[in-house]
Amino acid sequence: MPLSKPNQDLRRDLQGLASDMKWSAVELMRVAERLSQAGNEADAQAVIRICQVMQAGEDRLAAYGDEVKAERIERKRAE
């Protein structure tokens, strides 16, 4: 059975947010690399920890999208 329009929108939003987080983490890793090369290892490590948190969030959002697709999570229409 195909997903309802609200669930399609929810899944698309979750996938988009996961993609945005992935892109942001990649960009932050580049910043961390430049910080490290400049000798600012403490800040580089802090940025890397932020990236790890973002990557975990990305994974959770993608999993939620999979649950929407499997119809374990659904969005109801507003009444």
Rank of each mutant, 00 (worst) to 15 (best):
A25S: 12
K5P: 00
S24K: 12
N7A: 12
D13K: 07
M29A: 04
P6C: 11
K69M: 06
D66L: 00
A18F: 08
A70E: 07
Y64P: 01
V47H: 08
V26K: 02
S19G: 08
G57R: 09
W23F: 07
E67N: 06
L61T: 04
A44L: 07
G39M: 04
S36G: 08
V47G: 04
S19T: 08
Q55C: 10
R72A: 03
D43P: 08
R30M: 05
R34W: 05
D43Q: 13
D13S: 11
K69F: 04
K76R: 15
M21N: 12
K69G: 00
A62S: 11
K22T: 10
W23I: 13
M29R: 00
A42V: 10
G16K: 04
L35V: 11
G65Q: 01
M29P: 00
A32M: 06
D9P: 00
S36P: 03
R77E: 15
R77S: 12
I48A: 08
D13L: 10
A44E: 05
K22H: 04
P6Y: 12
A44N: 02
A42Q: 08
R34G: 05
V31N: 04
A56I: 12
L3R: 00
R75I: 14
E74T: 15
P2F: 09
E71C: 03
M21L: 15
A56G: 12
V31R: 01
R34Y: 04
R60I: 14
R77Q: 13
G16L: 06
G16A: 06
Q37F: 06
V26Y: 02
Q37W: 05
G39S: 06
D43I: 14
V26Q: 03
S24W: 11
Y64K: 08
E41V: 06
P2H: 06
D43V: 14
M29Q: 02
A56C: 12
W23G: 03
A42P: 01
A46I: 15
G65A: 06
S4N: 08
L10R: 02
R77W: 15
N40W: 11
Q8R: 02
A44K: 01
L35H: 09
Q37N: 09
Q8F: 01
R30T: 08
A18G: 12
R30I: 04
M1L: 09
V53Y: 15
Q37L: 08
R11L: 11
E27Q: 09
A32L: 03
A38L: 08
E67Y: 05
A62R: 02
A78Q: 10
Y64A: 07
A32D: 04
A44P: 00
R75K: 14
L28F: 13
S36F: 14
A25W: 06
L35M: 13
L61Q: 05
A32K: 01
E67F: 06
P2K: 03
M29C: 05
A18I: 05
